[in-house]
């Protein structure tokens, strides 16, 4: 399957990555080659095969819904890029003008 540069731009956006023009060309060709390669799978008929979620066919273990972790907010925030008053800071997401209006 050959991807177009527009398709790769869209994938990069979904993955929250920027690509410059040169990377766009390289990745378009590399990703197309990889998809061509994985499409070898299509030669095998899997109509009556169930998808395998776990090699030992066991289900995810569940635990009781009780608190097990202590509060480590201070430790976790100590390594954050930007925090204030116990909150993680990011650029403004809400357009204040509209809110005020």
């Amino acid at each position: 399957m050959s991807l177009t540069t527009d398709a790769v731009k869209k994938i990069a956006h979904l993955a929250r990555l920027n690509l410059n023009e040169k990377e766009l060309v390289t990745f378009t060709s590399q990703l197309s080659n990889i998809l061509d390669f994985v499409e070898q799978m299509n030669k095998t008929d899997t109509k009556n095969v169930a998808p395998l979620a776990h090699p030992l066919d066991i289900n995810q273990r569940l635990r009781d819904d009780v608190v097990t972790e202590p509060d480590q907010r201070a430790a976790f925030q100590a390594i954050a890029p930007q925090v204030e008053a116990g909150l993680y800071l990011v650029p403004k997401v809400i357009e204040t003008d509209e809110v005020e209006a």
């Binding site: 994985v38 799978m41 299509n42 095998t44 899997t46 095969v49 169930a50 998808p51 395998l52 090699p55």
Partner: peptide
């Protein structure tokens, strides 16, 4: 076409 197909292939390999 991709993920589900691959999980089925994985079953055959196992």
């Amino acid at each position: 076409a991709y993920y589900l197909k691959a999980q089925k292939a994985r079953c055959l390999i196992r």
